[in-house]
């Protein structure tokens, strides 16, 4: 049921930053919840968080498959889920990393180098008929870069899925999910 959609850059995508207890199987619990309820994920990134014993899972969800409120509430029923923050894309910093190997002969290599330079991508490896580049940045920028690269023939591509944190300017607001509010949602402020 759960499909990972190729692009998460639609204007009304929703980013959930989910703080979980770092227990065995926690990622499987989150993933199987999405599968079981028929919710779609654009991307998912997970790594240890600042608190010991906690991990942060950044999920970009497709709200066409279910109302966001229902997704958040179902997620919060997982015992290992400690906190859910819905990040507004306009008030968050979002980053993603892209690695791509492009087929290119020596003759045309400069075109890729030029493209990489414009995007401030890094050239990681160069071979006689291919090169590997990396780009870190906003997912939209990665989309553009990927599209231009694909004209040249991408051999392999890997993106990390986005990670995000709230913007710091003017105490950006985010919605914090707590079980004590009548609908499970209240406004909170970032520390």
């Amino acid at each position: 049921m759960t499909a990972v959609n190729p692009k998460g850059s639609s204007l009304n995508h929703h980013i959930l930053s989910v703080l979980v207890q770092n227990r065995p199987g926690v990622l499987a619990r989150v993933a199987s919840l999405f599968a079981r309820r028929g919710y779609n994920i654009y991307s998912l990134a997970v790594a240890p968080a600042e608190d010991e014993g906690m991990s942060r899972i950044t999920i970009v969800v497709d709200v066409d498959t279910a109302p966001l409120e229902q997704i958040v509430k179902q997620l919060f029923k997982l015992i290992d889920v400690v906190k859910i923050s819905e990040l507004d894309p306009r008030r968050s910093v979002e980053r993603e990393l892209l690695l791509a190997t492009v087929r290119v002969d020596v003759e045309h290599r400069s075109q890729i180098v030029e493209l990489a330079t414009i995007f401030e991508a890094k050239m990681l490896a160069v071979g006689p008929d291919a090169m590997t580049v990396s780009l870190e940045g906003h997912p939209d920028k990665l989309d553009d870069f990927e599209e231009l690269l694909s004209d040249r023939g991408i051999v392999e591509l890997q993106r990390t899925g986005r990670v995000a944190l709230p913007k710091l300017d003017r105490g950006a607001h985010l919605r914090v999910n707590t079980p004590n509010s009548p609908r499970g949602n209240t406004k909170g402020t970032v520390r």
């Binding site: 109302p67 409120e69 229902q70 509430k73 179902q74 919060f76 029923k77 079980p179 009548p182 609908r183 499970g184």
Partner: peptide, 17 residues
């Protein structure tokens, strides 16, 4: 008692968890 039941099928006018 389950917040996820609120609005899952029918949107309540007054939800009480």
């Amino acid at each position: 008692i389950d917040p996820a039941e609120q609005g899952k099928v029918r949107k309540p006018d007054v939800p009480i968890v």
